[in-house]
């Protein structure tokens, strides 16, 4: 599949307002996956995604950090949300968008997982899920 088509699918699934927002979600999920997947699963996934996306599946360390959990995984995606963390217009007031950023990040992550799963055979999906941290595996399987 071409990268542009991959992004289009994610955008339609997630009702993203722009291609930039869609790509930010895709990139953040891929980079988070690169932090947690063991080498074999990472290579298997790399072989199934568009070449432009492969670059985000690179990890600097040889092995994933065993303490990398669902909170850290989510952190990568929340960081990509352009709906939160902008300058607080209320100058110190309650930022409701930030309060729900976790839910929105999980929703966006699900759209990316869904598009990724379509690139994988059921057995590959199960293998990949088994290598994900607790809770993240559920997000992946239920996407």
């Amino acid at each position: 599949m071409e990268y542009a088509q991959f992004l289009r699918e994610v955008r339609e699934d997630g009702c993203f307002v722009s291609s930039e927002e869609t790509e930010a979600a895709v990139v953040s999920v891929l980079m988070a996956l690169a932090q947690v997947l063991p080498g074999p699963q990472l290579r298997a996934l790399s072989s199934r995604v568009p070449p432009e996306a492969m670059v985000y599946l690179r990890r600097t360390s040889s092995e994933p950090d065993p303490l990398f959990d669902s909170h850290l995984f989510l952190g990568w995606v929340v960081s990509s949300l352009d709906a939160t963390g902008m300058r607080d217009k209320t100058t110190g007031g309650l930022d409701l968008t930030a309060a729900y950023s976790g839910d929105e990040a999980i929703r966006r992550m699900g759209c990316v997982f869904s598009a990724l799963k379509r690139q994988l055979e059921p057995a590959q999906q199960r293998e990949l899920a088994a290598a994900l941290p607790e809770v993240v595996d559920g997000w992946f399987l239920n996407a």
């Binding site: 303490l67 959990d69 909170h71 850290l72 995984f73 989510l74 952190g75 990568w76 995606v77 929340v78 960081s79 930030a98 950023s101 976790g102 839910d103 990040a105 999980i106």
Partner: peptide, 16 residues
């Protein structure tokens, strides 16, 4: 804490 906050990792590391 906000979802994805780096403090979660610090909490986990301290417990460990």
């Amino acid at each position: 804490w906000c979802a994805g906050c780096g403090d979660f990792a610090i909490l986990k590391a301290l417990k460990l």
